[in-house]
């Protein structure tokens, strides 16, 4: 039996999973602190653009290494953007959902403006991409599977996130303010700043997920960056379906990535193709439906906290 399609499914599925998996770990840290970042699309799209722009800007100086400048720029942008979002919702007390939606809409607008001003409207020129760590050949004819450092990061991150939340002081404070902010405050923890920190750290990972799309998976940024919409909101779902546990969240991210790869791999004809295109969404709904009955979200998730 020809297993090529299985290998392809795994390869494409893992590629698809990278932006989901990275962003989901970031969103997980943020949600653990009690902040629900609906602005996750903006948190990926704007850094994705920043990554492409930095990549192009440093290309003449650094050559292929400029892609890494893209990653740094994306993490910085993601952290900065989320910092603003968290500041608005914790200090200025703007509703989290409204602020998040605002950031998503802002992302669509701001990237379009910059594309028009500095690049062609169709998108940025192709820049450098992150060099693969290693490649695997010979599994199937002519197939060359490249393993990106970001894919390695996707597998490594859950362990780091687990240790961060479980073993560090900040991690303990994040879990406390997401569960019972009043108790944390009484214990001398500054709820607002812990939430801002958790959201900014989450933003770094959202940015990294966004950058994967423009300096790794693809070499450019195209307008109305629809490519980020799927991973962004699926990442939001993956955090829930994974029960706010880093390892499970990774597993669900991969499941969603593989589902997304079904259609291209099976080369389904166009008529049935539309059905297959909806498959990831259907799987998401089913997984969420099954999971939501047994899940226990952070008790203070999406609840604003105001000091008395």
């Amino acid at each position: 039996m020809d297993l090529t399609w299985l290998i392809l499914l795994a390869a494409f599925g893992l590629e698809n999973a990278v932006p989901i998996g990275l962003a989901a770990q970031g969103e997980l840290i943020t949600e653990k602190s009690g902040i629900l970042n609906i602005g996750i699309y903006g948190g990926m799209a704007i850094p994705a653009f920043a990554a492409a722009a930095a990549d192009l800007a440093f290309g003449p100086v650094l050559g292929g290494g400029s892609a890494y400048m893209g990653l740094l720029a994306a993490m910085a942008t993601g952290a900065g953007l989320n910092f603003v979002f968290a500041y608005l919702s914790t200090k200025i007390h703007i509703d989290q959902v409204i602020a998040g939606i605002g950031i998503n809409i802002f992302a669509v607008g701001i990237t379009a403006v910059f594309l028009q001003r500095y690049y062609t409207v169709d998108g940025t020129p192709n820049g450098n991409t992150v060099a693969p760590l290693f490649s695997i050949t010979g599994l199937a004819q002519n197939l060359r599977i490249s393993i990106s450092p970001l894919m390695a990061a996707m597998f490594l991150l859950p362990i780091l996130v687990y240790l961060f939340l479980g073993r560090t002081k900040l991690g303990l404070h994040i879990r406390a303010v997401g569960e019972n902010p009043k108790a944390a405050e009484a214990a001398g923890v500054d709820v607002a700043w812990v939430r801002i920190a958790a959201t900014a750290i989450g933003g770094m990972l959202l940015g990294l997920g966004g950058a994967y799309l423009t300096v790794d998976f693809n070499p450019n940024f195209v307008p109305d960056y629809a490519q980020a919409i799927f991973p962004a909101f699926i990442a939001l779902a993956a955090v829930i379906a994974g029960g706010w546990k880093p390892g499970y969240v990774l597993a669900v991210s991969i499941l969603f990535g593989v589902t997304e790869a079904l259609r291209p791999v099976l080369a389904v004809s166009s008529a049935q193709g539309y059905l297959f295109t909806t498959l990831p969404y259907i799987v998401t709904v089913i997984v969420l439906g099954i999971a939501s009955k047994r899940l226990r979200p952070p008790a203070a998730l999406a609840l604003p906290y105001k000091k008395e």
Binding site: K169, L172, R175, A176, N180, A183, A187, R296, P298, A299
Partner: peptide, 18 residues
């Protein structure tokens, strides 16, 4: 009580003065 439900007894005790 002002305990954080999903932290362990020890984590609750040391919270804020770890």
């Amino acid at each position: 009580f002002t305990l954080v439900p999903n932290l362990t007894v020890m984590e609750n005790i040391i919270l804020g003065s770890e």
